[in-house]
């Protein structure tokens, strides 16, 4: 059922050679190709409870988000750059603790794919 994931989540490691074969891409170079209508008044993504993130050892949201919305701030807190979100839903579904609040942006806002 839906909520089993948090406890079942188990961090795994790729073999070292595969891990080393991965390049280190600067995601902002990719984001420059995307068009957005940014909602300055309302964030459609948010952390429900920062204490839960603090206890989450692996913080997979920092890596699996395809556009790098989630970053670790200097204060150790998760920061949410909702402006770069492509509304895929991965964070809502993939957070082991279902700790990410997720709504659709208000009508007309958010990503606007030019090719899709």
């Amino acid at each position: 059922m839906g909520m089993k994931y948090g406890d079942a989540f188990e961090a795994k490691e790729l073999p070292q050679d595969l891990k080393e074969s991965l390049p280190d891409v600067y995601v902002d170079d990719l984001l420059m190709t995307l068009k957005y209508f940014i909602d300055e008044e309302k964030a459609h993504l948010w952390i429900k409870d920062h204490d839960v993130c603090e206890r989450c050892e692996d913080k997979p949201c920092l890596t699996f988000c395809p556009v790098g919305v989630y970053k670790l701030g200097h204060d150790g807190r998760i920061q949410v750059a909702h402006q770069s979100c492509v509304e895929c839903g991965s964070c809502r579904v993939g957070c082991p603790y279902r700790n990410i609040g997720w709504e659709l942006p208000r009508g007309g806002f958010g990503v606007a794919y030019k090719f899709g």
Partner: peptide, 27 residues
């Protein structure tokens, strides 16, 4: 006048292995 190159991976695996999609695509 363009090519679309991409991949799909199961989200639980991306999360468990803490992989960055754009790194995998670049590789």
């Amino acid at each position: 006048k363009s090519v679309s190159v991409g991949l799909g991976m199961m989200l639980d695996k991306l999360a468990e292995y803490r992989l960055r999609p754009y790194d995998i695509l670049q590789r």
